[in-house]
Structure formats: structure tokens, C-alpha cells
Write a protein that binds this DNA or RNA. Sequence first.
DNA 1: ATTGCATATGTTATGGTGTTACACAATAAA
DNA 2: TTTATTGTGTAACACCATAACATATGCAAT
Lengths: 138, 138
Amino acid sequence: MTAHSHTDQPALTKNQSLVYDALTDAKAPLSAYAILDGLREHGIRAPLQVYRALDKLLELGLVHRLESLNSFVACSNSECGARETMVFAICVKCNKVSELADDRLEAHLGALAAADHFTVHAATVELRGICGQCRSDA
Amino acid sequence: MTAHSHTDQPALTKNQSLVYDALTDAKAPLSAYAILDGLREHGIRAPLQVYRALDKLLELGLVHRLESLNSFVACSNSECGARETMVFAICVKCNKVSELADDRLEAHLGALAAADHFTVHAATVELRGICGQCRSDA
DNA sequence: ATTGCATATGTTATGGTGTTACACAATAAA
DNA sequence: TTTATTGTGTAACACCATAACATATGCAAT
């Protein structure tokens, strides 16, 4: 496993910037097609333009994919670059996502897997529940 | 959160049994459409027949969905019914999946979320890596 | 400057995943 | 036996993602 870092980024291309800005402006995860719809007036016309930009942004660690939603979020945790495994807490009420870091979780998962003779390369950890704000409102 | 139990099951209907048997016979996760293709000669003709059976089997806890693969597996861990959070270790080489249980993981994730004032209802934990058998073979 | 290469872009078409809407059948309960 | 619930069948559709091919752009190394 190799921790990436998104310090010292290469400049983003036009399409990459459009997609990245769409995600950073959004208050919740966006699907590729939602991004597409939001960028039509900026000249983005086809899914592939979005998916290619997303591929690059994922590779740079600027964006994460939420498997359980088939959607994408801009990275919001400065510690992300230093860790392998991030946890995404997805509020089922307001759809906001918190990106949580924990030093021990990766070790915990690694040990659990090792007991089954399994070597972990990557982990997907997505929590569904209620965020603090929505709990207060209720 | 409510732990389910799949002891004392209601009898499965024909379509539910067909889908469940397809998954228990498979050595790796199957997509809904792969199940569909495998059951055409048994009279299953449309995606919805598969998805409806899967919905019921998921509700009964007999089957799990792997979000990162858009696929489904038969439950293979007897402790599953007693726990909220299972871990799926997916071998990228042979595609086999181990379903792992760990008492402390749920608490660990709950505490991590609670520090962010988030209340967990459900968790998706999927590991990608190499299983013991494939590691030995290499 | 020109060649060569890697990367990014644009477009069309296609394939994989999942649901909506509607009609009908089987089962179980009152 | 009426009613309610659950399961089934079919068609059409919507959403997610990639393949194939052509073109363009940036950046070396000569």
C-alpha cells in the first residue's frame, strides 16, 4: 500500500478543474451525471468527459468515491494524504458526508484480515446514520 | 440498530430459492444480471424478478450486498445474525469473499463517529486484497 | 523548428445496473 | 368469501460506466 499526498499538485486541466469545483461547491456527494448536468453550460457534454476528470482527481487524492452511493465527494480531510483508510459518515437525512481519520482503524482491519490470512490493499468504510446537526434538529 | 437473525426462517418462495441457491452455489459474488443469466432456463426472465428476490433475501439476512462490486453473496458467517457490522474481505485475484466478524470493530467505528456527533445506523466495510490461498500460490 | 511521445479532449455508441408502472396470482386472515 | 398482503410477470425506462475512434495539446529531445 502506498499513501498518496496531494501537496505539490500538478495544475488541473480545464475539465478537471470544472469537475473539482463542482464537487467542492456541492454540500453533498454528486453522481457523475449530476456533475455532468451542472456543467453543461460550461461545455461539458458527455459522461466520459466527467469520468475522465474524476479518474484523474481520484488518482490525485483530491476526490473520493462513495461506493454505496455511486457518487463522489471532494476530499475534506487534511489528514487524508497521510493515511490509507478513511471513514465516510453519510447522513441519511441531509446527505452530508464527514471524512474521518483514525490511526488505529487501519491496524484493526489489517489484524482482523490477517487472522484470516488475508492481506489488505485497500479498504472501503462507509457509515450511514444521522449527523449531529440533523439529530439536534429532530 | 436492530440485529436480525435468520434462524426460524419463513419458507422461501420459488424465485427466492432459485436466487438463493444460485448464490450459495457460486464461489464468488454474483451481479443481479449474472444471476438472471444463470436462471433463465429456470424461468427467470426479467431483472425485477431477481431484484425482488434479492430484496427479500437481504431483509432476511441470508444474502449480503457488496457495494464496491455491485454484487451479492450468500451469507457465510454464522455469527452474522448476532452482529451489526460484518467485514467482507474480497480477494482481487480469485474473487472469493470472506465474511469476517469482530466484536470490537463496531464499537470502534461507533466511537469514531460519535466523536463527530454522528450516530451510526449501518456500516459498509469492504476490504480488497489477496487471500491466503492466492498468496500461497504466488 | 520539428519530430515524437504522453496526456487530455470530443463524440458516438454501447453495455451494465436498478427502478417505475401496471396487471395479475397466490396466500393468509377476518 | 371478502379483504389485505405478499409474490409474480412483463414492458419500458432511468441511471451508471466504458469502448472505440478521432483529434488536439503540451512537452521533451534532438
